[in-house]
Each structure stands twice: as C-alpha cells, then as structure tokens.
Simulated scan of single mutants.
Amino acid sequence: MEQDYKVYAKALKVLSDETRLKIIDLLGDGELCACDLLREFSITQPTLSYHMKTLCDSGLVVSRKDGSMVKYTIDHESLNALKTFFKHMSSGMPV
C-alpha cells in the first residue's frame, strides 16, 4: 500500500508542471510524435525531450520508435490507476 502512495505522489509531481500537463492533454486525443508536440510549444527540442523523459519515467506516457520518429501515447493503465485513487479518496473508501 505504501508503495502505491509513492507512485501516486510521483505522478502528481510530474503533472504539477504546466507543460507536462498540457502534453498529457494533447496525448488524450491519441498518439503524437515529438515533432507534433514541439509545434504546440515555444520550447526547444532538448526541453521537450526532458519533459517526455520525465513523463515516461513516471509511467504516465509510453514511447515507441517509428523509423526516425518517436511517438508518444498515454499509458491508460497508469492513468486509470490514478483516477481510481482519486475516486476512492473522494468516496471516503480506503484505497
């Protein structure tokens, strides 16, 4: 149980950044390549790479190589676990 709190805390810390939160929102519409994400921000490619590594390391996003491109998607299992955690908190039920 205690380990779950560490996972949730890490995910929430990752999502506390405005850029990463927007990336999650954009990925909610489906898979995107790094070049598509970069067009949505006024940041450099190395900065985007840092944010994507942080999201992938947290387990919220999954990456895959497609030729020379890297494509990203939401890890729905991880996101659903976080949603379930919030549902339990709001219902007063133990996690």
Rank of each mutant, 00 (worst) to 15 (best):
Q3N: 15
Q3E: 15
D4P: 02
D4C: 07
D4M: 14
D4A: 14
D4V: 07
Y5I: 14
Y5V: 10
K6T: 11
K6L: 15
V7E: 15
A9L: 15
K10I: 07
K10F: 08
L12G: 13
L12V: 04
K13H: 06
K13D: 07
K13I: 08
K13W: 05
V14P: 00
V14A: 02
L15R: 03
L15D: 04
L15M: 11
S16H: 03
D17Q: 04
D17H: 08
E18A: 05
E18N: 04
T19K: 09
T19D: 09
L21C: 07
L21I: 00
K22P: 03
K22R: 15
K22H: 13
I23M: 08
I24Q: 09
D25R: 13
D25Q: 14
D25F: 12
L26T: 09
L26H: 12
L27S: 13
G28M: 06
G28W: 05
G28C: 07
D29L: 10
D29N: 11
E31N: 03
E31S: 10
L32G: 03
C33G: 06
C33T: 05
C35H: 06
D36I: 00
D36R: 04
L37K: 02
L37Y: 01
L38E: 05
R39C: 01
E40Q: 08
E40D: 01
S42R: 03
S42F: 01
T44Y: 02
T44E: 10
Q45W: 04
Q45P: 01
Q45G: 03
Q45R: 14
T47Y: 07
T47S: 14
S49K: 12
S49R: 11
Y50E: 14
H51I: 10
H51A: 12
H51K: 10
M52Q: 09
M52P: 07
K53G: 06
K53Q: 13
K53I: 08
T54E: 10
T54S: 12
T54G: 01
T54I: 08
L55H: 03
L55Y: 02
C56E: 11
D57G: 07
D57E: 12
S58T: 08
S58D: 08
S58K: 05
S58Y: 04
S58R: 07
G59R: 06
L60Q: 08
V61D: 10
V62Y: 11
S63P: 01
S63A: 11
S63K: 13
S63D: 10
R64F: 04
K65H: 09
K65F: 08
D66T: 14
D66M: 10
D66I: 11
D66R: 13
G67F: 09
S68E: 13
M69K: 10
M69P: 00
M69F: 08
M69S: 11
V70C: 02
V70Q: 06
V70W: 00
V70K: 08
V70D: 04
V70I: 05
K71P: 00
K71Y: 07
K71H: 07
Y72V: 00
Y72K: 03
Y72T: 00
Y72H: 03
T73I: 09
T73D: 07
I74G: 09
I74E: 03
D75G: 09
E77R: 12
E77M: 11
E77N: 13
E77P: 01
S78M: 13
S78Q: 11
S78F: 06
L79Y: 12
N80Q: 11
N80P: 00
A81D: 11
A81K: 12
A81Q: 11
A81R: 14
L82Q: 05
